[in-house]
Design a protein around this nucleic acid. Structure first.
Lengths: 335, 335
DNA sequence: CTGAAAGCGCTTACAG
DNA sequence: CTGAAAGCGCTTACAG
């Protein structure tokens, strides 16, 4: 059986209270600290989390609520949140739920039964359900990732969508593009609209008229991306550059290059939000705006921890995390 | 504060022991059962997991060990495992670790500290480390998903790779293909080799000579898939059909169709293991062999639960889960 | 800074 | 089938 505090007590001659204090980072005499550390190492002592949680009435658990485990975006960010929380002695439970239900009482009950102390959410559809209200009534802090909700007041962590779309558009304009297509997200998505706003602002500042800003909105899936790109390529006057606002769309665009016999970048310049291994492997490699997943995860964790400590200063806060521009070879200078 | 057993005691007049028995599915008098159920509902009682775990000395937690959260394959299967375990009152912790280290003591320590009772693993590289040995010494059951290990004796759950590759190859042969390319996985991967074995067996049975079986092995990434497909397309005599053994390769193949000006299925027939939304959205939609993720997850959970109950009958067991053939339009009948 | 005592909310033998 | 008692491994006031 593994060692308990009692074993450390016997080994060091100190009281359980002192050892508990050491474990919880409180001040104890240096010589006792050393003795405890040596004893812990010797006995291979690991604190029993269940006992800690029961006694302290804290679960030290947070939950990441995902609409799906298989999503490109959220799968990886989960790692970074978990890593950050672990450093702060918190467990993370990743939970998939069905975002289409408006009654999320069941999800709420599950969150209660694992005694979650905080929650990180990523699906804006949750706004249409009763979950956020239930959480707020129960005083469980929630952080929203990626989106900013319209009808709820909540802390959010998101990429600097506006600025980075602006930056990418500027890059296209500086390469002589004056007729630019955007394959954009749903019109009711905050993130998508911020990116489009950044795009339009850059166009506006550089004299690209609205009819040369070809912005199509769709839903977040490959099917939609295929349709929009197709529609765009069949325009009497095609754009010289296409800016995909996410991973699903760029994949769809690449699939269709063949159909329209388009060479990148000679026939069409192509850039996108999000990156993937395949974008740098193919020829030509695609220029991208990469969201900083480690930083997004860390910031969400930091903000959640702050709220769980009871610090509601500056609530509600929106943290913007800078995305990274990676230039590769998918844009032709046509100026 | 939420209700405890004491509240149920006061409300029903029964003893905590009886209520505990009810909670744990033991036999109690029907009228008491009804009273307890009514009381639980009335008070909104949720058992305190930490107390249960501390007292019963069981964590009721299993761990899924992933090399990465963002992997196409494992992301989604996690949901199904979690769902199954939840039904059996187990929590699931998904943990990402670095599979390249041979010393996994740190991972092991983490598993101990969360008191995991069982573990589901999916990365064969773990075989090169000390983790499995540490787990076996600690008597913590492990189940391997997807692969069958060569140097360790362990339960495994995997798709019927041999049969399904055989089936897909047969489909190509029946459509008149006599020269078939395979973009295959690493030569040291059990799964990849099983698929190749199934392919070769079907070829053998239908008189396709070895020099018409163009099998290339690579590593699991887009870069490798691109290289192999390229090499295959530059062959003096191209295959008439290409069978991709996984998701990464088929994506790479599709990217390259343009370069070689290939129309599917007229110039080349193309089939693959694994499915994705985009494969049915593009034209033509791709014929695939879809692994049954829900069944794989459920079977892994079932087998792990059995081992955790101490039932080691039939150890080590290999469970094969049938993959599903989905015919679409990427294969031309050239007979 | 340290330690004796109490107790978190359950489950587990055990006796009936 | 039920209940009284003990105790899982910690942390928390509290007194010193």
């Amino acid at each position: 059986m593994s060692a308990t505090i009692k074993d450390i007590v016997k080994d060091t001659g100190l009281s359980p209270a002192t050892i508990s204090k050491y474990l919880n980072g409180k001040k104890i005499a240096p010589e006792n600290k050393m003795a405890i550390e040596a004893s812990i190492k010797k006995l291979g002592y690991i604190p029993n989390r269940s006992a800690q949680r029961l006694r302290s009435k804290k679960s030290n658990t947070i939950t990441i609520l995902l609409p799906s485990f298989s999503d490109y975006f959220w799968g990886s960010i989960t790692t970074y949140i978990e890593e950050y929380m672990q450093k702060h002695n918190y467990s993370t439970i990743v939970m998939a739920y069905n975002p289409s239900k408006t009654d999320q009482s069941e999800t709420y009950q599950q969150l209660l039964s694992i005694q979650t102390e905080g929650c990180i959410m990523v699906d804006e559809n949750i706004e249409k359900s009763n979950l956020i209200q239930l959480m707020q009534e129960a005083n469980i802090p929630c952080i929203f990732l990626d989106q900013i909700l319209k009808t709820c007041t909540l802390d959010s962590v998101t990429s600097n969508n506006y600025e980075s779309a602006y930056e990418m558009t500027l890059y296209l304009i500086q390469h002589g593009h004056k007729r630019i297509g955007v394959i954009g997200g749903p019109a009711d998505s905050y993130t998508a609209m911020e990116r489009i706003r950044g795009f339009r602002q850059a166009c506006l500042e550089h004299g690209i008229s609205e009819d040369h800003q070809i912005v199509y909105n769709g839903t977040y899936n490959a099917q939609s991306g295929l349709q929009l790109f197709q529609k765009m390529m069949e325009l009497p006057e095609r754009p010289t550059a296409v800016f995909s606002l996410n991973y699903y769309y760029i994949m769809a665009c690449i699939q269709l290059l063949h159909k329209y016999d388009l060479r990148i970048p000679d026939d069409l310049s192509l850039v996108t939000f999000d990156d993937d291994e395949i974008f740098s492997a193919i020829h030509p490699p695609i220029t991208v705006m990469l969201q900083d997943f480690p930083a997004l995860g860390k910031e969400a964790g930091r903000l959640l921890l702050k709220r769980m400590r009871g610090d509601w200063e500056d609530f509600p806060q929106v943290s913007y995390v800078k995305a990274q521009f990676i230039e590769r070879d998918s844009v032709k200078d046509i100026s």
